[in-house]
Design a protein around this nucleic acid. Structure first.
Lengths: 275, 275
DNA sequence: CAGACGCTGTAATTTATGATACGTATTTTT
DNA sequence: AAAAATACGTATCATAAATTACAGCGTCTG
C-alpha cells in the first residue's frame, strides 16, 4: 500500500504515456502545490491539455480530481503538523534520544506558538491586566488544573481573580457577579464539556469577555469567545497532552506580570508583610 | 507591508464582527490548509455561512476568494521550498524566533529529560501501577495544579487515587490511612513549603513510599523520598516555569497507562457505561 | 422606546471548473 | 508500408463553486 501520492507516481511513471509523464514530472517538481490548483492551471504548467491531467489522475487510481486533491491535502496536513517527520529533512542535531512522546510534546509547544501572534497575546494580556475587571477562570476535566495554575499566579499580581471551583451549580450562581467589564478565561479541550459551553453561553449573554484556550479542533465555546488560542494536543499516547496549553498559560502569566509590574510588585511586598 | 496572511489576520482580528472572527480563528487554528479548501468547507468548519467567509476574506483586502487562496499557496510554496527556513518564515517575522521564554521552556523540558533515566521512570511507574497500593498526590502553592492534573488521569486508569486537597489539617488527618504499601506523589518547588515537608516526614515515618518531583535545587523532601525527579524551572521571567514538571507528570501518566493497559481499558469501558 | 445601523444567513445568480465525447495525430504492429 | 491501436487536444456539457441580493435579527443610539 503506497502511502503518498508521490510514491504512487514514481511507481507508475514507467507505464505512462508521454503526456501524462509530463504531468507527473511537473507535479513532482512542484510537489504538491500545483496539484492543489485547478486542472486548467496544472495542465498549462505541464504544457498539456486538461483531459490529459484528468487521465493522469485517474491512472493513479483516483476516481475524480477532487479526490486526488483531498489526498494531497491530507499529506500536506500531516507534514505541517509534525515538520520533523518530513522524510526529506531529518535534522536531529543534538536532541538525540528523548522519547517520541516528549519530542511530540516539544513540537506541539513550538507549533502552538507558531500560530499564536504576539498581538493576540498582547490583546489578551490587556484584558487580564485591566484593573477594574474581575477575572474568572475555569477548565474542563483535565484542563481545570491549568486554570488553577493560572489563577494561582494571577491572584498574586492583581485583585479580583476567582477560580470557579466545585459543583456546576456553584459556579453557575457566580454568573450573577459577572458583567461587561469582566473576563472569563476558559480552558477546554475535547471531549468538550457541555457544562462549560452552557456557562460560556450565559456569560457571553451577560457581555462578559471570554478568552478560550482550546485544542486545534476548537471547542464549540469558540463561538462565544472574544479571543481564542488553539494549542496542539496530539501525542503518540493514549491521552492528549495539555502541555502546550500549560505553556500558553505560563506565557500569559509572564506577560501579565510584566504589564502589571509596578502594581504587582507593590502587592507582593504587602503580602510579604502580612506573614 | 504585511507579508503573511496570518499577520494580516492578527492585525485586524480586533475590528472584526463575531462571525468573521470565528472564521479567522478557525483559519489560524488550521493554518493554512482550511483556506485552500472550498468556501463551503471552510464555512462549515468554522460554523458560519459562506457569505461570512467571503466577507472575512474581503475584509482582509482580497478582491475574491481565489486571490486569497493564491496568497496562501504562495506562502506555502515559499515555506515548502526551503524546509529549514520553516522557523524563519513565520507568521510574525518581527520577533525573529519564538520568544526567549518559550525557548527557555523548551530547553528546560529537554534538559530535564536528559537527566531522567528510563529506569527511573519505569521504577516510579511500577509503584504507581501497583494495584494494591493507594496513591496520594499533593503539591505546593503553584505545583498543586500539576498534582491535580496527574490525579485526574490516574484516577481513571486505576482505583484508589486521592488528591490531598483543602486545609493542611484535612490532609494531615489522611496520614492515618497511609501505610507501607502506599505511595505519596509530591510536587514541590521553591520556595519549598514547610507544610509539605512535615507531611512527607510523617508519611515517611509510616513507611509510605514517597515520589518527589521538584526543581533542580531539590526540595528538602528529597531526604524522605524513594524516588526524586528534578526538573528545570528557570526561565527569563518573573516566575519560575513548572512546564517541565508538567511534562514529567504527563510522561508518568502515559507510561502508567501503558503499563495498566488492560485494566485501564476495562475501567474506561465501565465508566462509559455508567453515563 | 423607536428608529437606524450593522451583522448574518437563505436563496437565487453567475462564474468557472471538472468531466466527456469525438476527431485528429502519433505510434506500433504485421 | 498499411492498418490498428493508442494517445492527445478541441469543443461542449454538466455541475459544483463563488458571488450577490435581500430579508431577518439583534444591538446600539438618540
Amino acid at each position: 500500500m503506497a502511502s503518498s501520492v508521490a510514491e504512487l507516481i514514481s511507481g507508475r511513471m514507467g507505464e505512462m504515456p508521454a503526456g501524462e509523464r509530463r504531468a507527473a514530472q511537473t507535479l513532482i517538481a512542484n510537489y504538491p502545490l500545483i496539484g492543489l490548483k485547478t486542472v486548467a492551471d496544472f495542465s498549462q504548467q505541464a504544457g498539456v491539455s486538461s483531459p490529459t491531467i484528468l487521465r493522469f489522475v485517474s491512472r493513479l487510481g483516483f476516481h475524480n480530481y477532487p479526490e486526488f486533491q483531498a489526498a494531497l491535502q491530507d499529506e500536506l496536513a500531516a507534514q505541517l503538523q509534525s515538520p520533523l517527520s518530513r522524510t526529506s529533512v531529518r535534522p536531529t542535531p543534538d536532541q538525540g534520544k528523548t522519547s517520541p512522546v516528549i519530542e511530540a510534546t516539544l513540537q506541539n509547544i513550538r507549533e502552538t506558538f507558531r500560530h499564536v501572534s504576539d498581538k493576540q497575546i498582547r490583546d489578551i494580556v490587556a484584558l487580564i491586566a485591566r484593573p477594574r475587571s474581575t477575572i474568572f477562570l475555569i477548565g474542563g476535566r483535565f484542563t481545570d488544573p491549568v486554570a488553577r495554575y493560572t489563577a494561582a499566579h494571577l491572584t498574586i499580581i492583581r485583585p479580583n481573580v476567582f477560580h470557579l471551583t466545585g459543583q456546576e451549580s456553584t459556579w453557575r450562581d457566580r454568573l450573577i457577579d459577572m458583567g461587561k467589564r469582566d473576563v472569563l478565561l476558559i480552558f477546554d479541550i475535547r471531549r468538550y464539556q457541555d457544562s462549560l459551553l452552557r456557562l460560556a453561553e450565559k456569560a457571553h449573554a451577560r457581555g462578559v469577555e471570554i478568552v478560550l484556550v482550546t485544542d486545534q479542533w476548537l471547542s464549540p465555546i469558540a463561538r462565544f469567545a472574544r479571543h481564542v488560542i488553539a494549542g496542539r494536543t496530539a501525542v503518540p499516547s493514549a491521552w492528549d497532552s495539555s502541555a502546550a496549553l500549560f505553556v500558553v498559560a505560563e506565557a500569559l502569566i509572564g506577560e501579565a506580570t510584566r504589564e502589571l509590574e509596578t502594581e504587582s510588585a507593590r502587592r507582593i511586598r504587602e503580602m510579604e508583610e502580612l506573614r
